[in-house]
Amino acid sequence: MTDTATQPSPSDEHPVPAEEHAHPSEWRYIQIAIALAIVTAAEVTVYYLSLAKLAMVVILLVMAVVKFSLVAAFFMHLRFDSRLFRRVFITGIALAITVYTIVLLSFGVFLTNRHVTPHVNVPSPTASQ
């Protein structure tokens, strides 16, 4: 989270005006939107294909990451804007993914075949403490 801060600021001595970032053209925005639409269509298609569960999960997750990155990189200008913004945002995402994955793993969410025991509730010996 503080990786941003350890970076010496580029302009400590002489503040410069906000850096100019070349925003992409409107045509580029439309291209991105078309790509997003195509990926969304593909997602829905994959949903209706009877793939193995693992394959389906992987494909769907990859496509979601692609869409997420396209929007963040182009529409939110992270690709063109200061690295600092990118780092702050990625810190948030990475932290969220890490800690919540650990939480879910500790519940065994991704580990057990939960269809077998759908209603098992992890007993908590100290729930009443």
């Binding site: 989270m1 503080t2 941003t4 801060a5 350890t6 600021s9 400590d12 001595e13």
Partner: peptide, 23 residues
Amino acid sequence: IINMRAPGMSFMRMPVFTWMTLV
């Protein structure tokens, strides 16, 4: 803390209290 530092106040010149406040 990131944006309002005086000229020359680089991160590694910041007082520790300011640093800890940032963290």
